[in-house]
């Protein structure tokens, strides 16, 4: 049976610290765009921490929610792509193939989660900042769309290692950069086709829900509510 990669985000553990955001930049060669482009909404964050204020002072609450590509099973980004750059893999990932992408940005329009980012310019790394770039991940050029891949390079690397050792992948062996960095362990990644995996167990939790569930996008990211105090 093929794997079906998914994630669980325990909002009761998440403290909004932003470690995942930086980890993602470090792992995935995500450029910084600078202040003037950021002001135009062109900053790229494959994962971001959203916040929701409720109530008025003094009875005010704030809730955090890390949002990355939800890797939907019925992904609105896929059917709109004229070049199949955005497509579904056998392991359930929403792949974005940069060299197929011609930059129509239809996918970003279709995505209800706003997790797709367009390279408006050639990314720049003043030297020697480029020495940090991860050779296991492509550097995207101007005119393509990019988004969270669930750190597919880490999935591949672990799968190659497991195959070389002639064994099955272990639950928890693959950690995308955000999951690895989270000190509160709010993020859990694994195979949803393995009912015993940590992520499967968490996804079945009665605290669990999907983001914008009623849109029918069938996300593979499950959020676990913070219990109401």
């Amino acid at each position: 049976m093929p794997h079906r990669w998914g994630m669980a985000v325990d909002l009761d553990r998440c403290t909004g610290c932003g470690a995942c955001v930086t980890a993602c930049h470090a792992e995935n060669n995500i450029p910084t765009v600078g202040d003037s482009q950021a002001a135009r909404g062109r900053a790229m964050h494959w994962i971001r921490v959203e916040r929701y204020w409720e109530g008025e002072y003094p009875d005010v609450t704030l809730k955090f929610r890390p949002v990355m590509c939800q890797q939907c099973d019925a992904a609105p980004c896929e059917p709109v792509c004229p070049t199949y750059a955005s497509h579904h893999t056998d392991e359930g990932l929403n792949a974005q193939i940069y060299n197929r992408c011609i930059g129509t940005r239809y996918c970003a329009n279709a995505c209800p989660y706003n997790v797709r980012f367009f390279d408006f310019f050639h990314p720049q790394w003043p030297k020697p900042l480029d020495a940090q770039l991860n050779p296991d991940v492509s550097v995207r050029e101007v005119g393509v769309m990019e988004k969270c891949t669930f750190c597919v390079q880490r999935i591949h690397a672990a799968a190659i290692d497991a195959k070389a050792a002639n064994r099955e992948l272990k639950d928890g062996e693959i950690q995308p950069a955000c999951v690895q960095s989270c000190s509160a362990k709010a993020l859990v990644f694994g195979d949803l086709n393995d009912p015993e995996s940590e992520v499967s167990k968490l996804s079945r939790s009665d605290r669990g829900h999907k983001l914008l569930d009623d849109l029918g996008t069938l996300p593979k990211v499950t959020y676990l509510n913070r219990p109401q105090a």
Binding site: H122, P123, Q124, W125, P126, K127, L129, D130, L133, V139, R140, E141, V142
Partner: peptide
């Protein structure tokens, strides 16, 4: 020959 910025251009 080096320049100051690494870019995909």
């Amino acid at each position: 020959l080096s320049d100051a910025v690494f870019t995909t251009a």
